[in-house]
Measured scan of single mutants.
Amino acid sequence: MAAGGDHGSPDSYRSPLASRYASPEMCFVFSDRYKFRTWRQLWLWLAEAEQTLGLPITDEQIQEMKSNLENIDFKMAAEEEKRLRHDVMAHVHTFGHCCPKAAGIIHLGATSCYVGDNTDLIILRNALDLLLPKLARVISRLADFAKERASLPTLGFTHFQPAQLTTVGKRCCLWIQDLCMDLQNLKRVRDDLRFRGVKGTTGTQASFLQLFEGDDHKVEQLDKMVTEKAGFKRAFIITGQTYTRKVDIEVLSVLASLGASVHKICTDIRLLANLKEMEEPFEKQQIGSSAMPYKRNPMRSERCCSLARHLMTLVMDPLQTASVQWFERTLDDSANRRICLAEAFLTADTILNTLQNISEGLVVYPKVIERRIRQELPFMATENIIMAMVKAGGSRQDCHEKIRVLSQQAASVVKQEGGDNDLIERIQVDAYFSPIHSQLDHLLDPSSFTGRASQQVQRFLEEEVYPLLKPYESVMKVKAELCL
């Protein structure tokens, strides 16, 4: 049975990233139509530049190519590739079939990587351009969430054990800070992308030097003109047959890092959902379990974690691919890159769409948070109580021993009897502590235990987050809708 299948058929496997999760716009960027249309555009740009620099290419040939950029006979191309065992030459023939007058000058002087690699770089750039505003929107939604809850005390956790208090907004800023680093890295790697350009079979530009009869300047002009037509500021000066596969490492490393950030955020949300302090959106008709109707599973956060793990592992592909590119190139890269580049971007696209949807509907339960604080705060307040007693004339050592005994009794009630923490009640009825009984409410005010959390939130948002989001103001209103 021949390899390949009808990918629109229910009898043929289709990647869930495309069929179930990723956005239509990201799927289109990695589609065959987008790819092969870009090949034709690159052939047109090459012909236009070659004509401008004096090669015998007519206006009629150029116009014929322009008129057929979208006229792609995919069936013919597939048949040609089956016959020739070469995808680029299959599309040269297919393009030439609908451009008979231009057929002889299509791909003039070029090698397969002229269309293959340059198209990949265009796709990487455009895919990054799709991700950047999506990530900015996630940051914006979380920034709104953090600002609104900047002063809401909550129990902090280290080692997932109760620690000092923080605020809900401050905790959210930990998430935002990681995503801001990801946004900066995505922008950097996007701006650092260079075009492969017009380089020939081993990167020496020998074929173009021959076409222009040894004119170095025209060869350099050709490279520059096509690079500018493709919208790049610069091209690699040095290439082998391909652009260095280190570029793929750079791009997928940034995406993998984004995956790590999203995994951490969504894990926190899942843990908070278990504590009943916070939940992701839950639709009115949504079913959490087929057997347990009360369940409210954090399905979206779980999906993000599941896909983020996949995204983090994909960076190993370009690392290994770059390491086995012998001399000017081997074909070890080809099949692998067809999979890992598309999957990385479709996965990143999915987790950003999902995280935006989550961040637009996060639900906080202040009463649950308050109750958990009441359970733990008495123990945390013991040092403040000791200091207040010393100020009232008591002995630190005597007070410490009193607190120690009462704390152990209260802990026994919590752990052995399943009761509430009654340390404060014990202190309130103990005559030894009568000098500070009137101060206990103040000493137990949760806001006095959150330090500068709310001020940190305000400063972080104003100095770091809002300036970073400013270039994306025009796209901030787009909502994230999930079908599944």
Rank of each mutant, 00 (worst) to 15 (best):
335 A>K: 00
20 R>F: 03
433 F>I: 06
261 S>Y: 02
476 M>I: 12
316 M>E: 04
183 L>I: 13
126 N>V: 08
86 H>F: 02
40 R>S: 02
326 W>D: 02
407 S>E: 00
344 A>W: 00
421 N>F: 05
441 D>V: 12
38 T>S: 09
483 C>H: 15
74 F>G: 12
204 T>A: 10
456 Q>D: 03
411 A>D: 00
311 L>D: 00
21 Y>A: 05
87 D>Y: 08
304 C>D: 03
269 I>W: 11
448 S>G: 13
159 H>F: 02
442 H>N: 13
219 V>D: 00
271 L>E: 02
30 F>D: 03
284 K>S: 10
413 V>T: 13
408 Q>S: 08
253 S>F: 12
469 L>D: 04
428 Q>G: 15
99 C>V: 14
190 R>T: 15
24 P>A: 11
411 A>T: 09
112 S>K: 04
409 Q>S: 07
157 F>Q: 05
298 P>V: 00
358 I>P: 03
474 S>A: 13
390 V>P: 05
134 K>S: 06
153 P>K: 12
60 E>S: 13
148 E>Y: 05
323 S>T: 07
274 N>R: 03
353 N>A: 11
460 F>S: 04
324 V>Q: 09
318 P>Q: 01
266 C>E: 06
276 K>P: 01
193 L>Q: 13
254 V>R: 05
475 V>G: 13
193 L>C: 11
220 E>L: 09
189 V>G: 14
111 T>L: 00
116 G>E: 02
461 L>Q: 14
164 Q>W: 06
343 E>P: 09
450 T>V: 11
163 A>V: 02
220 E>T: 07
149 R>S: 07
252 L>Y: 07
83 R>K: 05
245 R>A: 02
235 A>F: 08
202 T>Q: 12
75 K>R: 00
465 V>D: 01
154 T>C: 06
231 G>H: 12
114 Y>R: 04
353 N>K: 08
274 N>L: 09
156 G>C: 06
28 F>I: 05
142 L>K: 09
197 G>T: 08
76 M>G: 11
115 V>R: 04
11 D>N: 15
31 S>G: 05
154 T>R: 04
19 S>E: 14
449 F>Y: 13
81 E>C: 01
410 A>V: 05
415 K>V: 09
462 E>L: 13
266 C>P: 02
443 L>P: 00
282 F>D: 08
213 E>P: 15
305 C>Y: 02
435 P>C: 13
244 T>P: 14
80 E>N: 06
109 G>Y: 01
176 I>Y: 02
213 E>R: 14
10 P>A: 13
193 L>V: 07
322 A>F: 15
326 W>E: 02
209 L>S: 12
392 A>P: 03
185 N>M: 13
45 W>G: 12
319 L>Q: 03
60 E>Q: 05
132 L>A: 09
43 W>Y: 06
481 E>M: 14
455 Q>D: 01
298 P>A: 14
96 G>D: 09
77 A>C: 00
382 T>Q: 06
356 Q>V: 03
247 V>I: 11
275 L>F: 03
336 N>D: 07
231 G>V: 04
123 I>H: 15
456 Q>N: 07
387 M>P: 03
22 A>Y: 15
153 P>Y: 08
421 N>K: 03
455 Q>M: 14
236 F>M: 08
389 M>L: 12
294 Y>D: 06
124 L>C: 04
75 K>Q: 12
483 C>E: 15
23 S>N: 10
409 Q>D: 13
450 T>C: 09
479 K>I: 13
160 F>L: 08
4 G>A: 13
347 T>A: 15
342 A>E: 00
169 G>Q: 02
112 S>F: 03
87 D>H: 10
426 R>D: 15
263 H>T: 11
116 G>T: 13
446 P>H: 13
75 K>C: 15
219 V>R: 01
398 D>Y: 08
70 E>P: 04
259 G>C: 15
383 E>W: 03
145 F>M: 15
138 V>W: 14
210 Q>N: 05
173 C>T: 05
319 L>K: 00
106 I>F: 10
351 I>R: 01
16 P>I: 12
318 P>A: 05
223 D>V: 05
448 S>H: 12
104 G>N: 12
314 L>N: 03
320 Q>S: 13
128 L>W: 07
384 N>L: 11
164 Q>I: 03
262 V>P: 02
152 L>F: 01
102 A>R: 01
184 Q>T: 15
280 E>A: 06
310 H>K: 05
460 F>H: 09
20 R>M: 03
136 A>C: 15
419 G>T: 11
326 W>H: 15
143 A>L: 12
12 S>V: 14
171 R>N: 01
229 K>I: 00
433 F>L: 06
209 L>M: 06
427 I>W: 00
321 T>M: 13
378 P>E: 07
24 P>N: 15
214 G>Q: 14
431 A>V: 07
109 G>A: 06
209 L>F: 14
222 L>K: 03
281 P>W: 00
58 T>F: 06
367 K>E: 11
18 A>K: 10
252 L>E: 05
435 P>M: 04
160 F>Q: 00
9 S>T: 09
214 G>K: 09
248 D>R: 02
224 K>S: 11
34 Y>R: 04
316 M>Q: 13
33 R>T: 07
416 Q>D: 10
483 C>F: 10
246 K>V: 03
253 S>E: 04
475 V>Y: 15
202 T>V: 06
39 W>G: 07
204 T>M: 04
271 L>I: 10
473 E>Y: 15
291 A>C: 02
38 T>N: 12
87 D>R: 00
95 F>Y: 05
359 S>P: 14
380 M>W: 00
421 N>L: 10
12 S>I: 15
305 C>A: 05
98 C>I: 09
174 L>E: 14
205 Q>W: 03
482 L>V: 13
261 S>M: 01
173 C>H: 09
44 L>M: 08
6 D>W: 11
292 M>Q: 00
208 F>T: 06
55 L>E: 08
122 I>R: 02
42 L>I: 13
66 K>I: 11
143 A>T: 08
322 A>Q: 07
184 Q>A: 12
458 Q>I: 14
343 E>A: 03
334 S>N: 12
3 A>K: 15
400 H>V: 10
292 M>P: 02
4 G>R: 13
68 N>H: 06
221 Q>V: 05
250 E>W: 14
34 Y>N: 02
180 C>Y: 09
477 K>T: 15
182 D>A: 05
91 H>C: 07
326 W>V: 04
411 A>G: 12
13 Y>G: 13
282 F>I: 14
8 G>H: 15
10 P>Y: 13
232 F>A: 03
103 A>Y: 09
55 L>D: 02
339 I>M: 04
426 R>E: 03
368 V>T: 05
91 H>A: 09
214 G>N: 10
121 L>D: 00
20 R>A: 08
254 V>C: 13
235 A>R: 07
360 E>K: 03
288 G>I: 06
214 G>Y: 04
188 R>V: 08
384 N>F: 03
433 F>H: 02
128 L>E: 03
172 C>M: 10
215 D>Q: 08
98 C>P: 10
149 R>D: 05
109 G>T: 08
260 A>G: 10
415 K>H: 02
142 L>T: 04
82 K>P: 10
366 P>W: 14
100 P>W: 10
391 K>L: 06
465 V>F: 01
77 A>I: 13
395 S>M: 11
432 Y>E: 13
470 K>S: 15
466 Y>F: 12
184 Q>D: 09
289 S>D: 08
296 R>Q: 15
337 R>K: 09
180 C>W: 06
255 L>C: 14
